[in-house]
Simulated assay, not measured.
Amino acid sequence: MTESWDPSGTGVLQLPSGRLVRGRGLRRPLPPGPAPTFAVHLLGKPPPRIPWESRWLRWPDFSLPGDRSQARSVLLEAWERAASERVEVACGGGRGRTGTALACLAVLDGVPSDRAVAFVRRHYAAGAVETPWQRRYVRHFTAGQ
């Protein structure tokens, strides 16, 4: 088992189960402290190489994932790995796409989908999940397959 994130660390969201996931904007420097062991990059083009394991979801800015089935699979993997690893979810700015993905992780963790955006805005960033279609995506995201 890997040492987890510091719950008070920059961008760290604690899910109801106690899992910790860090959200981040890739245009900002890497926060101090340990590096992630697994990352999910939500970008319109392939991300730069990093020294830890990662997955790339094609997800253009202010939009939704290009492949929703792949998005569900990658987000489920991130949620599962967050139980024992340092998982980071990141897009360019760290708010819209990252907030949307974090809200989906909250749904996987048991937060009702109609409350997941509010949960992420309260515990991660007030401006998270930027567009109406991102909010709708979260409302229709379910914990079950």
Rank of each mutant, 00 (worst) to 15 (best):
V12G: 01
V12T: 04
V12M: 06
L13D: 05
L13W: 02
Q14H: 02
L15W: 02
S17C: 12
L20M: 11
V21M: 00
V21S: 00
V21D: 01
R22D: 08
G23Y: 02
R24V: 09
R24M: 07
G25R: 04
L26F: 06
R27K: 13
R28A: 15
R28E: 13
P29Q: 01
P29V: 08
P29W: 06
P29G: 10
P31S: 11
A35P: 10
A35S: 15
A35K: 12
A35F: 09
P36I: 08
P36L: 05
F38L: 09
F38E: 01
H41T: 12
H41Q: 11
L42A: 05
L42K: 03
L43F: 13
P46C: 14
P46Q: 10
P48Q: 11
P48A: 15
R49Q: 07
R49P: 00
P51V: 10
W52P: 05
W52K: 07
E53F: 10
E53S: 15
R55F: 08
W56N: 02
L57V: 09
L57E: 06
R58Y: 07
P60W: 10
D61Y: 09
F62K: 09
L64G: 08
L64R: 06
P65Q: 11
S69T: 15
Q70S: 13
R72L: 10
V74S: 02
E77T: 14
E77F: 11
W79G: 01
E80I: 07
E80T: 09
R81P: 04
R81N: 10
R81L: 12
R81C: 03
A83P: 03
A83N: 07
S84T: 15
E85D: 14
R86V: 03
R86E: 06
V87S: 01
V87K: 01
E88G: 07
V89H: 04
C91D: 10
C91G: 12
G92K: 10
G93W: 04
G94L: 02
G94H: 06
G94Y: 03
R95A: 14
R95H: 15
R95P: 00
G96T: 09
G96P: 01
R97C: 12
G99Y: 00
T100F: 00
A101D: 05
L102E: 03
L102S: 02
A103H: 08
A103N: 07
L105N: 03
A106M: 09
A106Y: 05
V107R: 00
V107T: 08
D109H: 09
D109W: 07
D109S: 08
G110A: 08
G110E: 00
V111W: 00
P112N: 11
D114W: 14
R115M: 14
R115D: 15
